[in-house]
């Protein structure tokens, strides 16, 4: 099975309704199905690696969210499952994110090294 690189760039797309990010969820599912898969966070999705995200407390009339998304924890679970999680360091820096803001277990990669990362993966799925 060829190595897959999932690239995620769009952050917080329906994450409340889905209770997770659809592509992080898909990455989990593919890993569970036996995929040799890595994850790259770029553009706004670098914010997924920020510690302490809290989307709790939403109420619509009498309906309240029982379980809000926990994207940072989902990423930690992916890394714990053996999925290499990369993050474009310039994208994080431009958005004011320092190492102290980010969860551990995420590998920073420079934009200039993205071609090499892509070369290492026969399948590149840019979501």
């Amino acid at each position: 099975m060829p190595k897959i690189l999932n690239i995620v760039e769009t952050a917080y797309r329906a994450t409340i309704e889905e209770q997770d990010d659809t592509i992080l969820w898909l990455t989990h599912a593919l890993k569970n199905a036996g995929a040799d898969i890595s994850l790259l966070l770029r553009a706004n999705a670098v914010n997924y690696a920020v510690k302490g995200q809290d989307a709790s407390g939403l109420v619509f009339g009498e309906a309240s969210m029982a379980h809000s998304p926990e994207i940072d924890k989902d990423l930690e679970k992916l890394a714990a499952k053996g999925v290499p999680v990369y993050l474009v360091e310039e994208d994080a820096k431009e958005r004011g994110l320092s190492d102290a803001d980010l969860i551990s277990g995420v590998k920073k990669i420079s934009r200039r090294d993205l071609p090499e990362l892509i070369d290492q993966h026969p399948q590149v799925w840019h979501w």
């Binding site: 099975m1 060829p2 769009t10 797309r13 592509i23 898909l26 599912a29 593919l30 569970n32 199905a33 036996g34 995929a35 399948q123 799925w125 840019h126 979501w127």
Partner: peptide, 22 residues
Amino acid sequence: GSPKDFLEASSASDATLVIPTK
């Protein structure tokens, strides 16, 4: 189907193209 079906289909294919939404 499921993501597992997608993975198996891709693995057995000659080409895979992902067309995402924004």
